[in-house]
Design a protein around this nucleic acid. Structure first.
Lengths: 101, 101
DNA sequence: CGCGTATATTGTGATATAACTATCTATAGT
DNA sequence: ACTATAGATAGTTATATCACAATATACGCG
């Protein structure tokens, strides 16, 4: 009976639940969006995000949807603008990881 | 001239360099491998990793290669065994993120 | 209503990733 | 040399993702 030394491995269900969120977030443009949004204290319009990313509207919009689908971002309509903000602060730890090189 | 409030966004080159590493790591089985290896204080053989993951040999071997290609793991041969260990401690922060739910 | 601005969706072709089976190489022991 | 064990690689099919172009929707205003 080879008693395993460390027994507190993260269970597979958790890994399977979290991995896609991280995988979907780990994309240059989506990280940029996340970084930008987390740097602002107000939710930002799509136009502002497009500006910050210097990327085509359709592509940014797609990425926003992906992040929203993963519950990383939330969107709320404000008159004829849609404002996005970071929904899940856990994901911001990713950015910390990256900043620490 | 709309002086941008926060100017310290992570540059795109960095994001493009780091994103694939994170993306390749954010896979249930690969995270499990990483978690296992980081829980042991000695490098582990492929067989031990297979055991810890309860996954087929070929699949584990493939994942090990992917993690090695991303310089997340290193391997060294020890007689007729190959022992893997974590090469890049930064990536372990991912596991911390996950543990903190 | 009709137009402009803001944002979302769809369709497409190229490329990447996943899981799996089968096979191959290398080494150790006899 | 023969066999068993340890590990890596190749081939395959299904599915996912990418970037992009084109089009659609939604809202506010005159």
């Amino acid at each position: 009976m080879t008693t395993n030394s460390a027994c507190s491995l993260i269970d597979m269900e958790t890994l399977e639940r979290i991995a896609p969120i991280i995988r979907h977030t780990a994309h240059p443009l989506r990280l940029r969006i996340l970084d930008f949004l987390s740097s602002q204290d107000e939710p930002q319009t799509v136009t502002a995000i497009i500006e910050a990313c210097k990327s085509p509207q359709a592509i940014v919009s797609q990425q926003l949807r992906i992040l929203k689908d993963q519950n990383v971002l939330t969107a709320r309509r404000d008159r004829n603008h849609v404002k996005y903000s970071v929904a899940n602060n856990n994901v911001l730890l990713l950015l910390d990881c990256i900043r620490r090189h």
